[in-house]
Design a protein around this nucleic acid. Structure first.
Lengths: 162, 162
DNA sequence: AACCAATCCTTCGGCTACCGAAGCATCTGG
DNA sequence: CCAGATGCTTCGGTAGCCGAAGGATTGGTT
């Protein structure tokens, strides 16, 4: 048997990736933001008291990169920079209302059509897809797995941490 | 019920995307190639008689972008440019042996660990994930759907083509 | 045959992404 | 109060990415 599901899954996954990547670039063009700017904006919006280093860490960008992107978001009036009181080395980043509107008013087209189609699937299939994607996320997310082995028995091998 | 599987799926999917994106950047650093160069190289390798415009179209890059990336791949000796006989405006791109080796010798770390973990899942789950991801690819790939409605009955809505 | 529009690719100019290294301010442990 | 660590920015550099313009080639028209 030794069925070869893995490469097929990877290939299909690449198609998904490509589609979303292209969509995010189109979205960027539509909003005037670049994909990276959008990514950073979303990441700031998603957390309380975001700091540049936290964003850099979450997105795996260097701090220098975050600085330039935040610079631009600030120029656009989407984000506010404010020194932290606790630690005056830090900046607290917050999303201004203009930024909120940009996020809300510019739905990702791929995401939109995806959702429109997805909700038409039978419930069981929706649930199945969700379960599968969450499983995928676990299988791929190396960061969190190092912190806490989420997977079931005997799944983790950890051959050479490099 | 009106269960909200869609946003959860999107959120999980974003985690997957992030993980692969980060992995591809790490891979790039490891091989000396950039993510885009790798993408283009893979795309050339994947097809017979690749032309710049075909690659540009598949990856949704401009021709100008492909030109510069192929320039660099050529400098590295990974890709060969040759005028087409049929149509002398075109170039035929082929992957040189050095490029083949680069592709083969530099496995994506995310992909590798993913596969290592994936194959340990029970067969039924592997099959389930594969089915789900293929379904996802269908749901997201706007390009092909316009050409041929792949989905089952009543799935397509096509509300405003924008 | 001569032309015109379309097509393929490149070149050019310009902005952004992204990084490492260096620099400045601040914090923390001793 | 000082030394080292930390958070962020600035600087210099490579690459991505694009639209517009340009050179060559093609196919269809008259």
């Amino acid at each position: 048997m030794d069925s070869e599901f893995a490469p097929l899954t990877l290939r299909a996954l690449r198609r998904v990736l490509r589609a979303t990547e292209i969509g995010s670039r189109q979205l960027a063009a539509a909003t005037g933001l670049t994909p990276s700017q959008l990514l950073v904006l979303r990441e700031i919006a998603a957390r309380e008291a975001a700091t540049p280093s936290a964003i850099a860490n979450a997105l795996q960008f260097s701090q220098a990169t975050i600085t330039t992107i935040v610079d631009r978001l600030q120029e656009l009036g989407f984000v506010h920079r404010q020194r932290s009181d606790r630690d005056k080395r830090q900046f607290i980043l917050t999303v201004e209302s203009a930024g909120q509107m940009a996020l809300a008013g510019a739905p990702d087209p791929v995401q939109t059509t995806f959702t429109a189609r997805f909700v038409r699937l039978p419930q069981w299939e929706q649930a199945m897809i969700l379960a599968a994607v969450e499983r995928l996320a676990m299988l791929m997310d190396a960061q969190h797995i190092d912190a806490a082995p989420l997977l079931d028995s005997g799944l983790i091998d950890r051959s050479e941490p490099a």
